[in-house]
Every structure is written in C-alpha cells, then in structure tokens.
C-alpha cells in the first residue's frame, strides 16, 4: 500500500473556475432569454455568433502562440455572451465576430490571458465598436420593431413609466432592457457565492444617490441605461475589480457616480461602459491603498 503525501488542506471548495464561469452564464440566461423573446432569432444568432467567435479566437490564439489552451474554463464564453448582450439587435453579425476577437485577443490574451488583463474585455470591445461604428451601435428599435430613442436619449424621459423600464418595454440593446431579468441574475450570482454583494449593491446605490444629488430622477436613472447590467456583469468581473472590502466599495461607488456624471454632463447619453472601464484602471491602486488590516498589526505600512 503506498500512501500519497501532500500538504494541507486536503479538501477544496466545490467551486472551480469553470463552475464560476458557468454560474455567470446561468445568471446571464434570463437577460438573454428576454432579448431573444423580444428581438427573435436574430438576437439568438448574434449571441451564439459572439460566443463562438470568442472561443474560436481564444483557441486559435493560444494554439498559434504555443500557450496552453484554456477554452475549457468557459471564460471566453462569458466574454462573448456579455458582449452580445450589450449591442443593439440591429448590429450585423460580423461586428460581433470582430468585437469578440478584439476582446479576447487584444484585451485579454495580449496582456497575458485570464487573470492578467487590466480592463474588462467585453466592455473594451463594446467601447471599440461604439467608437468605430457609432451609427450602427446606437440604432435602437423598440419591441415592436420600430426604430426609436432609448429612455436616456434627450426628450425621451416622459415616454416610459417605471414599470416599462423594470420589465423592459423599452428600446435598447439585446440584454440590458429588462432590469428584472438582470436582477434575477444578480441574485443568483450572490446566492451561489459567485460574487460578493458589495460591488453590485454599491454600484446601484451610489448611482441612485448621485442622481438624486445632481437633481435627476434617481429611480428613472437607475432603471434605465446599462447601470444595472454593468453592476451585475461588468463591474463584477473578477480580474478587473478590486479584492479587499474597502476597495470594492470605493470602486463600485466610483462606477455609480461617474455613470451619472457622464449622463448629466457628458456628450454620451449613457456612461456605464466608460465608468466601469475607468474604475478598472484604478483597481490596482485601490487594492494597494485600501488593504485589509493585517491581524495583530496596528496599521499597515505602505507597500514596497
């Protein structure tokens, strides 16, 4: 009888990286389902094309660069799915191919692959698409297929009731319109211990408070645009969000505040994308300067 020797611990949590990524996909399903229900097979096709393109890009890149192929961790699927859910159903399919390839190769793999990218790949790709094809990316149709203004466009404020916003009876991108579906996703992520509650809750809360401070209708502003989707699936991205409790709260509050600042004074009607990207850049600093207090030490000396 030979016995194996290993260092403790001898038990590991059932949550593997793959399991966590699958949890995110499960949490995205209600939003995706609502998008498909609203916009039909076209939305479904865009989601599938985007996911496929992301995985293929990752596979090809890792093969070409002789790195271990890690498509089994499902993180590329998540990136592709999130990207598809935040583009308009009017987008041509090739745009998603370009977008997810950009997300995976340029934003993620070039910086070292999973865990080493410094901004959220899906969001960076969305920003790239928005900058490259602004006309297509901002062409929105309402649920009856008629082209119309989104709730955050100028002069559109009075068209929609809170209920319309909550259940998604508004024009917009594939997966961001139905806030209820997204909230179901957030709850699943928190209950399954995939993410902590701090980032989504503080993002939404700070956007609410900030909107109220600058004189906007807080309920309307939280329920419209991409803030809730960003709070659920973008701000929460493991790699690009801070780890300590304090840093997470500052980071999330920053996203909410900057989103409202862009909406109120910026040139774009919506600011969640840029708010998250900006706070992504601050993540290393936040982690470093808002650490957990080390047990038994009075205060933490400045690092390095």
């Amino acid at each position: 009888m030979t016995l194996r020797l290993s260092t403790s611990p001898h038990l590991r949590s059932p949550q593997s990286s793959t399991r966590l990524m699958l949890n995110v996909i499960i949490a995205l399903l209600p939003s995706a389902a609502f998008g498909v229900y609203n916009y039909g097979y076209k939305a479904l096709m865009l989601i599938l094309v985007s996911m496929l393109s992301a995985v293929v890009s990752e596979y090809l890149w890792q093969r070409l660069t002789n790195r271990p192929v890690r498509i089994k961790d499902c993180s590329a699927l998540v990136t592709g799915m999130i990207l598809a859910l935040c583009v308009t159903p009017e987008a041509p399919w090739w745009m998603l191919v370009v977008g997810s390839a950009f997300a995976i190769i340029v934003v993620k793999e070039l910086f070292g692959g999973i865990g080493d990218n410094f901004i959220n790949p899906a969001l960076a790709a969305r920003a790239m698409l928005l900058a490259s094809w602004p006309m297509v990316m901002t062409r929105h149709i309402d649920i009856d297929g008629v082209s119309s203004a989104t709730p955050l466009a100028e002069g559109a404020q009075s068209q929609f009731s809170y209920l319309d916003l909550l259940i998604g009876r508004i024009p917009g991108v594939i997966g961001e319109t139905c806030k209820l579906a997204i909230i179901v996703g957030i709850v699943y992520l928190i209950v399954s211990r995939t993410v902590t509650w701090r980032i989504p809750v503080f993002t939404i809360l700070s956007a609410f408070v900030m909107a109220w401070i600058v004189g906007l209708d807080p309920v309307y502003h939280v329920l419209s645009g991409g803030i809730i989707f960003a709070a659920a699936f973008m701000a929460n991205d493991y790699t690009t969000s801070p780890m300590t409790r304090g840093a997470q709260m500052v980071y999330a509050s920053g996203i909410g505040i900057i989103t409202i600042i862009i909406r109120k004074w910026g040139a774009y009607p919506e600011g969640a994308t840029y708010a998250v990207l900006f706070m992504n850049l601050l993540t290393p600093l936040l982690d470093r300067y808002i650490p957990h207090r080390v047990y038994g030490h009075s205060k933490r000396e400045a690092k390095n």
């Binding site: 990286s17 961790d73 865990g115 493991y238 801070p242 780890m243």
Partner: peptide, 12 residues
C-alpha cells in the same frame, strides 16, 4: 494548478 483569475476569494 490553474492560473490565478484574480477572483479575490483568497483575500476574502
């Protein structure tokens, strides 16, 4: 071992 995905679970 897999690569660190910076999920922060160790810190938490």
């Amino acid at each position: 071992e897999g690569p660190c995905i910076r999920c922060g679970k160790c810190v938490a």
